[in-house]
Amino acid sequence: MDSLLMNRRKFLYQFKNVRWAKGRRETYLCYVVKRRDSATSFSLDFGYLRNKNGCHVELLFLRYISDWDLDPGRCYRVTWFTSWSPCYDCARHVADFLRGNPNLSLRIFTARLYFCEDRKAEPEGLRRLHRAGVQIAIMTFKDYFYCWNTFVENHERTFKAWEGLHENSVRLSRQLRRILLPLYEVDDLRDAFRTLGL
Rank of each mutant, 00 (worst) to 15 (best):
C116W: 08
Y114F: 03
Y114R: 06
L113M: 01
F115V: 07
A121K: 14
K120S: 08
F115R: 10
C116P: 04
F115M: 14
E122M: 00
R119F: 05
L113C: 04
R119K: 11
F115Y: 15
A121P: 13
D118S: 04
E117V: 11
L113I: 01
P123K: 07
R119Q: 12
D118F: 02
D118R: 14
P123F: 07
C116K: 06
D118Q: 02
K120A: 08
C116R: 07
C116D: 01
E122K: 00
Y114Q: 00
C116G: 08
E122H: 12
A121V: 05
R119G: 13
F115T: 02
C116T: 06
F115C: 10
F115S: 04
A121W: 09
R119A: 09
D118E: 07
Y114L: 01
E122W: 04
E122I: 00
K120W: 12
Y114P: 15
K120P: 02
C116Y: 15
K120D: 07
C116M: 10
P123I: 01
Y114E: 00
E117I: 10
L113Y: 02
D118H: 11
P123A: 12
A121Q: 09
Y114K: 00
A121N: 13
D118I: 02
E117G: 10
C116A: 12
E117F: 05
D118N: 14
L113V: 09
R119N: 13
K120I: 02
P123Q: 13
E122P: 05
E122T: 05
A121S: 09
L113P: 07
A121T: 06
D118L: 12
R119E: 12
F115D: 04
L113R: 13
P123C: 13
E117L: 08
D118G: 03
E117N: 11
E122D: 07
F115W: 15
C116F: 14
K120T: 09
D118P: 15
Y114G: 11
R119H: 13
Y114H: 00
R119L: 08
C116V: 14
D118T: 03
E117W: 06
P123G: 04
Y114C: 01
L113S: 12
K120M: 10
E122G: 15
E122A: 11
E122Y: 06
A121Y: 00
D118Y: 08
P123M: 04
K120R: 14
F115H: 15
F115G: 05
K120V: 05
A121H: 07
E122Q: 15
R119V: 05
D118A: 06
D118M: 04
Y114V: 00
E117A: 08
E117D: 14
E122N: 15
L113N: 00
A121C: 04
P123R: 14
E117Y: 08
F115L: 09
F115A: 03
E122L: 03
A121F: 13
Y114A: 07
K120G: 08
D118C: 02
E117P: 06
L113G: 13
R119T: 11
E117H: 10
C116Q: 04
D118W: 03
L113W: 03
A121I: 05
K120F: 15
E117C: 14
Y114M: 00
A121D: 10
A121G: 06
E117S: 12
R119D: 13
E122V: 04
L113H: 01
F115P: 01
E122S: 06
P123E: 05
E122R: 03
C116E: 03
A121M: 14
A121E: 09
R119C: 09
E122C: 07
K120Q: 11
E117M: 09
F115K: 14
C116H: 11
E117K: 07
R119Y: 09
F115I: 02
R119W: 11
C116L: 09
E117T: 13
L113Q: 08
F115N: 09
A121L: 10
K120L: 06
A121R: 12
Y114T: 02
K120E: 08
E122F: 14
D118K: 01
E117Q: 11
Y114I: 02
P123T: 01
P123L: 08
F115Q: 10
L113F: 15
R119P: 06
D118V: 01
Y114D: 15
R119S: 11
E117R: 03
Y114S: 02
K120H: 13
P123W: 05
Y114N: 00
C116N: 10
C116I: 11
P123Y: 12
R119I: 01
C116S: 02
Y114W: 06
P123N: 10
P123S: 07
L113T: 03
P123D: 05
P123H: 12
L113A: 03
L113E: 01
L113D: 00
R119M: 10
K120Y: 15
F115E: 05
L113K: 02
K120N: 08
P123V: 04
K120C: 12
